[in-house]
């Protein structure tokens, strides 16, 4: 119990002191995970949309696969990305191992299935409701899809937030491909793992608290943006 009190104290000390090391780590965490979610959106949203509105043989298998991949173990993704980016691997010449880019790649792999699977479900449900009406508007298939994406924007935003939550909280993949290098690839989760291994449990928990606060802040920001968007839409 003493540790919990101490960890709150650590968290406050770090936040109030605007510890530059902490700020660097927090910013890198946000940069890596937001970029990963952004790229995963560019890949996952069209994939989900495609699966939602098309019918082809084997579609069920693809959907089950994508949905199952939501449970990809981060360590496995980390290993696979490591083996690809390693100098001994196929993409070794790119020299990306132990860089934030490598971490973005690993997290993107983790997030794409989440966004694709959740977007597929959202858009398929919406399409069931909207299809006839959008046909009656005389929209072609691309315009229909664009309308579905816009109409489902808030549900889809939740899918992106789920992806962000997964990315910013995972440690298994980024510690392997990033290497937890101080000032280069150290993010919140790998810092927490490091402090835990040093036996600095209060500090580790304090960092954990800050991570939760950041996740809360990101979600609150999106919530407020949504509220503002709705207000301006119906003002």
């Amino acid at each position: 119990m003493q540790d919990f009190a101490a960890s709150f104290f650590e968290a406050f000390r770090l936040v109030l002191g605007l510890d530059p090391g902490l700020i660097e780590i927090v910013l890198l965490s946000l940069k890596v995970s937001m970029t990963a979610v952004f790229i995963a959106t560019i890949i996952g949203l069209p994939l989900g949309a495609f699966l939602a509105v098309t019918r082809f043989p084997g579609r069920g298998i693809v959907i089950v696969t994508v949905t199952a991949l939501m449970g990809l173990p981060p360590v496995v993704v980390g290993l696979v990305v490591y083996m690809l980016l390693s100098n001994a691997g196929a993409l070794g010449p790119l020299q990306l191992l132990y860089t934030p880019t490598a971490m973005i790649i690993a997290q993107t792999v983790l997030v794409v299935p989440i966004i694709a699977a959740l977007a597929r479900q959202t858009l398929e449900d919406l399409n069931g409701e909207y299809r006839d009406q959008l046909m009656l508007f005389g929209l072609g298939s691309l315009a229909r899809l664009r309308t579905l994406l816009w109409e489902g924007r808030y549900s889809l935003m939740t899918a992106l937030l789920a992806g962000f939550g997964r990315a910013v909280a995972e440690v298994g993949a980024v510690i392997i491909v990033g290497g937890n290098i101080n000032h280069v690839t150290r993010v919140m989760t790998t810092a927490i793992a490091l402090e835990t291994s040093k036996g600095n449990l209060a500090l580790a928990l304090g960092l954990g608290l800050i991570l939760v606060i950041i996740a809360f802040a990101v979600n609150a920001l999106v919530f407020l943006l949504r509220a503002a968007a709705e207000r301006s839409a119906y003002a």
Binding site: M34, T35, H183
Partner: peptide, 23 residues
């Protein structure tokens, strides 16, 4: 949808991360 999301992400990225990696 795409436009506004992209705008959001780009804006956030430029606001938050002028600090590139220590390269």
């Amino acid at each position: 949808m795409f436009t506004s999301l992209r705008c959001l992400a780009v804006t956030l990225t430029t606001i938050l991360f002028p600090v590139a990696t220590v390269a």
